[in-house]
Nucleic acid binder design. Sequence first.
DNA 1: TGTACATCAGTGAACGCGCGTTCACTGATGTAC
DNA 2: TGTACATCAGTGAACGCGCGTTCACTGATGTAC
Lengths: 223, 223
Amino acid sequence: MKRTSYHHGDLRATLMDACLRLIESEGLAAVSLRRVAREAGVSSGAPYHHFADRAALLSALSIDGFQQLAAYMVAARAAAPDSLAALTELGAAYVRFSREHPAQFRLMFRPELSQPDKHPDAAAAGDAAFDVLVETVAECVAAGALPADRADTLAVAWWGLAHGLASLWLDGHLEKRSAQMGTHAPELVDTIMSTFTTLITARTPPLSSPADIPGVGAGGPTT
Amino acid sequence: MKRTSYHHGDLRATLMDACLRLIESEGLAAVSLRRVAREAGVSSGAPYHHFADRAALLSALSIDGFQQLAAYMVAARAAAPDSLAALTELGAAYVRFSREHPAQFRLMFRPELSQPDKHPDAAAAGDAAFDVLVETVAECVAAGALPADRADTLAVAWWGLAHGLASLWLDGHLEKRSAQMGTHAPELVDTIMSTFTTLITARTPPLSSPADIPGVGAGGPTT
DNA sequence: TGTACATCAGTGAACGCGCGTTCACTGATGTAC
DNA sequence: TGTACATCAGTGAACGCGCGTTCACTGATGTAC
């Protein structure tokens, strides 16, 4: 972190980076503005030229995190061949984001730190991510692959499952359980996700209309 | 918090209580040993007669939380008419615990605060709670209501869903989404839980041979 | 029952520490002419 | 191109604060005889 010139160049980005690295290596409890400045190789007053206060730095990171999450989800949906497959990919993308940006993920769901009420941008970015999920569910409904009356519920259930798995995994619980089960966390999550999608698509229509399900393919439920 | 006698009587319990109330009213960031002592109406050195240090207090609360959670789950299973119904009740009990003990729930899943590595009791209590879920799934398998090869997976999925919904709800996300959807968080959670149980029980048996699954292949989300 | 004494569970002052934030300053950079 | 000057983005010392923890102390309680 040695600089040759007096001016830094892009201290704002450097501070955000240093903060994330610090969270990842020593946890959220280790984060203070002074410490972040030190990690960035800069005096303790320097950050105030880029962030109004400590909360502003954490907020900026949280907003950035939500925007990245939304980007992950948009990309996942775009890459999927159809809306049903997109649903699976969205869950996977959510968990993948939490794996690839653990510090940001934690920060995003620590409202007392990122203060979303003071920074509506974070909420907006969060909405954008959730909207991708809602839209995808709506597409599934439009395609006849999901029943309309449960669409909203399924979107939230999907979010809950992905969020729960991501959270447990980050805290080490999934590694522990999967070791007990003789498997590994990544496979476990994949299995859960695909099982869930299969369950939803194969079974929910009969709950609202007993007719056959278009788009799911031949050789459906054999029971 | 005025005492009449010099001795307190049960300062240990009072401190734990004060700490929980503080977390609930001002958040985890407000918790310091001095502050907790102040809330309990006691000098800042007094807690050290009952807890080795700050971490010990938080640890004790976390352990107590896991034990209570396990008790919730044991009671839920005991009250259910059969093992399949128990599964639904377990998820509901998990979420109910998080609603009735929000401060403890947050603490339990903040490993950097409760330091489970230094206090194996917390891990043991957590295991006990998870074991209730695993046993119930095993009972479902024994009763022929669930396929054996997916039992473990379903237990983790169930935990993930309950944990995700509880976490999102505590952070206010569920209230927000359910308001957008014209419903309320409690009903939303109930619907999701019962839908999930229905899906699992109605559909999983045919899944035991993955080759039969149409559409979403056996390979899972990983291309 | 009374007394001596050990133990328990408080007090409150003190310690050193790192924190968030401010501020007068200064070196580097950009711009007008 | 050179110079004067405004602005930007650092420095580092300083502030007051609450923190975790320690410690000599003291009042209350329990016990032995």
